[in-house]
Every structure is written in structure tokens, then in C-alpha cells.
Design a protein around this nucleic acid. Structure first.
Lengths: 337, 337
DNA sequence: CTGAAAGCGCTAACAT
DNA sequence: ATGTTAGCGCTTTCAG
């Protein structure tokens, strides 16, 4: 059996389709009596309006497209959750698209989303490459960036201040009396979570007028557990006197701890470790990780808020929003003072 | 500037709109010359067809709705990723909906998805309550269940065989020489991951003809780290002689390990622990967790495959699919033999 | 091979 | 207050 249309309802209720439309969209403009009758028939037929038809007319679908590198990533999933909460409150829906950092997949998704007439696009975690920006332009779709930003292009964005957060995390280690502080950084080529966090670390160290050769005190990895493990192996070899390590992600921090454990060193007794992100694992593992907390949920939530603002007014008051981060003190740092 | 329509293309190319439509949907039915001309204009205008209009006609949107308790949950996110991969390969998109286990939110989402004319609904992780099933019926939408199933209703589903997996995990502990084996189970009221896993544990124990009082050897929790911690506290009090614990989730297993560590006991030296799910944390934490691996990605992937089958043929060959699980041996179990 | 026209389900003027 | 009608952008007969 086919689903009922507005026409079916109108017929059965003995009114015109516009009356039915009115009880749904503008009930005051209809006699109470007829209104009630129509509502009854709607209930009886299990009628519900076709959003496609509506969207065709209004040119609004109440649907947003979300481009994310990988939903199964715990960080992305947290942000996504915040988006979804904000979206629900506003009657919006989210179509999620895994890009896996593949450019072709991104443009492919962008096309599909455009055809599906989404009201806007949320672009997550990745730098905005010129060809991507161009695609945004061509599609003429509102775009908001989540946990990434762009200094080249005027795109609204929501993230934390990574450089400052890393600065504060390093400063904390310094305040605890550490003077030999290494870092496991993300890739230098990552302008979002790589370079800025490294810069924050360096700023804190440079402030001390210490004699650091950063080539000796910094290693790199792609944020994953295994990367942290391997990077720590390299770092420890070239910088054995370190007493603390600041990591650009929680997973890498756990890799570091794991490597140290394997070498018979314990955290925080022998080496102190600070992570970044405050993902769920940070307070689950042993020792519990001192880490920089990103307000994942808020970032997602605020991104959708911003999108709504953009949709309503055609512009946003604050182009680039930097949400507050927080250093969460747990058990992975030892005080030397 | 508005986006180009098929009419704009037709005019500019000097053909009728039906010709443009043909170029897109049935290129062989058009002269090569005109075809080329039209393609050029399409490119020039940046035209892309409106999926809403198409959907209105075809009554197919190439969009699926996914109901999930919480995307930020690492388990759900893994399954979701598998779904997305399968969906992309088939030109489908996924609208995700967080239910937070709230019935009202579920029915609300179901309505919205129905209005948006999704081709089908994927329902994840939760038991199918009668009112939910009724809602499915009313909406007349194809439904497939992911990592849940229903024995009451004829709904296609994809999950692992939880009872058997738990049985094997417990059996493994027995084979390692353990005779005092406790369990941290999920809630009895959970017919998916709660009761079946407990039953598997009990079956393995009963097979040994041991004198177990399960009231003494089993405690319960809601799968989270904190639950595991607290449940272990209770379990250890009433069953102090245990040498191994089987947990219904990885997070609870880590809670157990954490509690034991706090009590000065070490895993696996003093107590062995087996988890369930093989989420990312299982191989990140110390000691690395021996656990039952669920093929999260496959579950999601297979669910979408099944949905496609249902959409194509109106039925599925195998109503309830049980994907193979696997016990992943790591470092959290000590052999006593 | 191509174009005209009907219509998918709905909303929004425009009449009445 | 209600009904009639013209589209929204597209596909699909049906003629030619």
C-alpha cells in the first residue's frame, strides 16, 4: 500500500488540499471544526508530509552535510555527537561523509551533497586546501569549519587555540620543575594540530632562555598509539636525559607510556607525560593521563550554531571562534619541586 | 546567483529539457553532437541535477536513516564507519540520529526520516521494543538491525553470536587452568549484550560440573569503565578467591584492572582479565587486553549490504546473520598450567 | 531522435 | 475562511 498524500487526506476529509496544507503550516487560518476533521483523517491515514516536495518549494531541506576524515576516530565521533545534539534541537539532520583524507572522495561527496540540496556543509579537522575552497565556491553552499580553521579564506570556524593550549601544557611541566622536556609532535605539515602545538611548546621553552636544540628534543608521529611508541623510541635515543614529554595526542601519550614501560621505566616516576585531547582513554588508562582537554562536544555544538547563524543572516558575527581549552591534571606528571 | 536548472541548460544549449534529461540518464538515446553540446553547457553553468526533484519522481532518495544510541561511543562509531563505507560504494548516504535510548526521541526521528523519504532505516544496538516495531510497521519502511536482533519479529539483522563468544572466552580461561572465574556482566535486562554473554559464561562453567553459585561469582554493570571498577569492588568482596574475571566489555575490563591495581594486585599476575569488543583501547592499555573481537566494521558493512538486498528484492536470503567473532589473545591472562 | 506535456507532492499567491 | 491554480525541477510517456 502506498503512503497517503495530501490529496488523499483532502478527499477523505472533504476539503481542498490547501486547507490540509494550512492545518499543517498555519492552523489559525482554518476553522476549528474543519481543522479537527482534517487532523483526524491525517491520523487515520497515517499521513505525513513529503519533505522532498517541501524542499523543492522552499529550497531548504533542513539537512546539513558533514565531511569528516573518519567517524570511527574517537575524536571525530565526539565532535559529531555535539553537532548532532545541536542539529536535533534545531530540527536539522546530518548526513555524514567519511573522506579518509582522499581529495577525490571529498569532491565526490561535495557533489552528492549539493545535489541533495543540503543547506550547508560542515568541514571537519582538515586544512582547507585551495582546490577544496574552490569546490566550496562553485557549489555556492554555506560552509563552516569544525576543529580546523583557515587563515587564507574567510570561512567561519570553531576550534580551540592549539598554540596557546600547547604553551600552557608545556608551561605546566616547567612549573613542576622539569627542565628537560621533550615533545612528540604531530607532522609539521599539519597546520591544525601539528605545527601550532609544536609552536606552543617552543614558545614556552624559549621563554625560559634555556639552551634547547629542538632538533634533539622533538620527534614526530601521526597521532596514533603506534606512532607515539615509535617516536618515543627515537626521542629517547637522542635525548635520554629528558624527564618529561609533551605529546600532541592522547594516543601518542599512551604509546610513549607503553614504550617506557617496556624499557623498565615508569610514568610518572621516571618520566612525566602530558597528552592532548582528553579523549575517553585518558582517564581510563593507568596512570590516568594529564592532558589538554578539548571541548569536543562544544566544538560540534557551536559549529552547528554558527551554521544556523550563517543560514539565517547570511553572515556570522565572529568569523573564527576559539573555544576555551583546559589542562586536566591527573596522574602522569611528577612534581620535581 | 541562483543555481542553474535543467531549463537553463536546455535554453543555452538550444534543446528541450527532455534532451538534457536524456543526456544525463540515457546518453545513447541522444545524438552525439547534441550530447556534446549539452555536456559543455552543463559544465559551463556548473549545473547539477536536483536530487529532490528526482526523488519526488522515483520515490527513492538513496538515503538511509541510522538510529544509534550514541555516535560518540567507540563501538557505535566503528559500526557506523563500516556502514558508511558500504553506503558510499553503493551511492547511498547516511543520516545519523542519536537516540540516547530515549523512546520519544526515537519515534520523533523515525517520523522525520519518513518525511525525508529515506529508503530504509538501520536500527542499532538496541532491543526492538513492541512500540518501536509498531512504529516501523506504520511507517512501512524497510528496517535492518545492526549489532542487535529480534527473535519476536521478522527483522533482518547482523551481529555476532554473543552467547557462543562468551562461552569460548570463558572456556579459554578454563583451559589456562583457572577454576575460580568471576564475571562482570552487563544488565540482565539487556537481551543483546547482557543476558547472552552471561549465559555463555554459565554454559562454560556448568560444563565443568563445578560447584558454582553464580550469585557469588557474577556482578553487573552498564559496560562503562566506572561500572567495571565498582562492580569489581563488589565482586572481590564476595568472591575473593577468584583468579580470573570475564567482562562483558573492554571498558569494564579496564575498570577491573584499575580497581585491582588500586588494591595492590596486578593483572595478569594476581588476577587474569578478559574483555569483550576489542575496541581500540584494548591494545593500547597496559597490560594489553585479551578480549573477544567483534568485527565492528563488518557488522556495519554487512548491514548495509543486507539493506540493499532488501531494497532490491523485497526480502533477504538470510534473515539473521551472525558474523564470526574471535578471541584475541594478548597479555591480560596468566596461564596456571 | 526529439519535443510537448503530464505529473511526482506540496506551498503560496490569487480568487471567491 | 476556503478553493483554484501555478509552479518548484525533474522524468517519462506519447506524438511526431
Amino acid at each position: 500500500m502506498k503512503r497517503a498524500t495530501i490529496r488523499d487526506v483532502a478527499e477523505k476529509a472533504g476539503v481542498s488540499i490547501s486547507t490540509v496544507s494550512r492545518v499543517l503550516n498555519n492552523p489559525e487560518a482554518v476553522t476549528e471544526e474543519k481543522g479537527k476533521k482534517v487532523l483526524e483523517v491525517i491520523e487515520e491515514l497515517g499521513y505525513s508530509p513529503n519533505a522532498l516536495a517541501r524542499g523543492l518549494i522552499h529550497k531548504r531541506t533542513k539537512t546539513l552535510g558533514v565531511l569528516v576524515p573518519d567517524v570511527s576516530n574517537i575524536y571525530a565521533a565526539g565532535v559529531l555527537r555535539g553537532m548532532e545534539d545541536a542539529a536535533r534541537e534545531r530540527g536539522l539532520n546530518l548526513i555524514i561523509c567519511n573522506t579518509d583524507l582522499k581529495r577525490e572522495r571529498m569532491t565526490e561527496y561535495l557533489h552528492i551533497l549539493s545535489e541533495k540540496q543540503v543547506d550547508g556543509i560542515i568541514y571537519t579537522s582538515e586544512p582547507v586546501f585551495p582546490d577544496v575552497y574552490e569546490a566550496f565556491q562553485r557549489l555556492k553552499l554555506p560552509v563552516v569549519l569544525a576543529s580546523t580553521h583557515s587563515l587564507e579564506y574567510p570561512l567561519p570556524s570553531v576550534k580551540i587555540h592549539d598554540e596557546q593550549a600547547a604553551y600552557e601544557a608545556t608551561q605546566y611541566l616547567i612549573k613542576q620543575g622539569h627542565t628537560e622536556i621533550g615533545m612528540i609532535s604531530g607532522p609539521l605539515s599539519d597546520p591544525i594540530a601539528g605545527l601550532p602545538r609544536l609552536q606552543g611548546y617552543m614558545r614556552a621553552i624559549l621563554e625560559q632562555n634555556w639552551h634547547y636544540h629542538f632538533e634533539q628534543t622533538v620527534e614526530y608521529g601521526h597521532y596514533r598509539y603506534e606512532d607515539g611508541f615509535e617516536a618515543m623510541e627515537r626521542l629517547h635515543r637522542k635525548y635520554p636525559q629528558l624527564t618529561a614529554v609533551f605529546c600532541a595526542s592522547d594516543e601518542m601519550a599512551l604509546g610513549v607510556i607503553s614504550y617506557l614501560a617496556q624499557q623498565g621505566m615508569s610514568v610518572p616516576h621516571d618520566v612525566s607525560v602530558v597528552g592532548f585531547d582528553n579523549t575517553r582513554i585518558a582517564h581510563i588508562c593507568l596512570p590516568k593521563l594529564t592532558t589538554v582537554s578539548q571541548p569536543l562536544h562544544d566544538i560540534g555544538y557551536c559549529t552547528v550554531q554558527k551554521m544556523e547563524e550563517l543560514l539565517e543572516h547570511g553572515e556570522v558575527k565572529e568569523l573564527r571562534t576559539y573555544l576555551p581549552h583546559q589542562l586536566v591534571i591527573r596522574d602522569s606528571v611528577r612534581s620535581l619541586v
